[in-house]
């Protein structure tokens, strides 16, 4: 008898996931703000799975209109896949609307099963406390613990693995790219900083779990702190970017990047959930 090939495999994979923090049960208001936020950069999402974090509204007695919420999220290319947190009633209502259940927000063990904690602080020691208004390492935990997130946050995944210091920092050397990064190319410095010496053209994408330095024009996208490291920074020789993002907070020129910084050397950092772009002093 010929052996039958296995028709499937079941595995656990660690995928980054967008989380939409629902801060209100007022769907009209939420829809209005979503529309305002994403209309200009419409193709940011395309059939992207998104989890809903309900912890901010867990004390409310009513459940959001999940069906309506899912429908207008879909208009923006977001596929609501499941809920994190929320009250028992809210979670039940979510299931009735066809959403899955992620584990509760407080423990949050399954969102990411400790991916060698690549955002370990050891990678970016230089950024801690170097700027007023940017607290040190505790920020990632504080910000989430306080759940002060507003709708500006596009938190790809906030690293919430106990105190970070418990995880041994796996040091990875800085990735250095010394040629142009061209449209369609994507460079990911996993658990490391990224230094690019060549031009980054429109349609190219730089992703790093640590900091990103670009000593040439940045015309494509730069995404630092991709695993949620809110202390990550981006340094750009000439800012012409399509998009810049740190730990899931992003800005585009049409929506937040000051026009007077175009083609200027800048540094970008995160102050709570606000992406700050400052000119680099010469």
């Amino acid at each position: 008898m010929a052996r039958v090939e296995p028709a499937f495999k079941l595995k656990i994979a660690n995928l980054s996931l967008f989380v939409l923090y629902v801060n209100t049960t007022d769907m009209v208001q939420l829809k209005k703000q979503l529309d305002m936020r994403f209309n200009k950069s419409q193709d940011f999402f395309s059939n992207t799975p998104v989890a809903l974090d309900l912890s901010a509204i867990a004390n409310f007695n009513i459940s959001p209109d999940f069906a309506g919420l899912m429908a207008f999220m879909l208009d923006h290319g977001m596929h609501a896949t499941g809920v994190v947190g929320g009250s028992a009633e809210q979670r039940e209502a979510a299931v009735r609307s066809g959403l899955g259940l992620f584990p509760d927000t407080i423990a949050r063990p399954a969102l990411k099963t400790a991916p060698i904690s690549t955002t370990a602080p050891g990678i970016t020691p230089n950024t801690t406390g170097s700027q007023p208004g940017v607290p040190g390492l505790g920020l990632a935990i504080e910000a989430v613990a306080g759940e002060t997130n507003n709708s500006n946050i596009l938190d790809s995944d906030t690293q919430l693995q106990k105190p970070v210091s418990q995880v041994l920092p796996t040091f990875r050397p800085t990735m250095i790219i010394n040629k142009p990064v061209r449209t369609g190319q994507r460079i990911y410095a996993e658990g490391a900083n990224l230094v690019v010496l060549g031009v980054v053209n429109a349609g190219a994408e730089l992703i790093a779990d640590g900091d990103i330095h670009i000593y040439a024009p940045l015309r494509g996208r730069a995404i630092a702190g991709a695993q949620g490291n809110e202390n990550a920074r981006i340094f750009i020789h000439s800012l012409e970017a399509e998009l810049i993002s740190i730990a899931g907070c992003f800005k585009v020129f049409e929506n937040g990047i000051p026009e007077n910084l175009r083609c200027k050397p800048v540094q970008v950092h995160l102050d709570r959930s606000d992406l700050i772009i400052q000119p680099l002093l010469s």
């Binding site: 040629k179 142009p180 990064v181 061209r182 449209t183 369609g184 190319q185 053209n201 429109a202 349609g203 190219a204």
Partner: peptide
């Protein structure tokens, strides 16, 4: 120019 950029990326990779 953008398409050429893409082709250059493919050539390099």
């Amino acid at each position: 120019v953008r398409d050429s950029d893409r082709i250059l990326g493919i050539l390099a990779a």
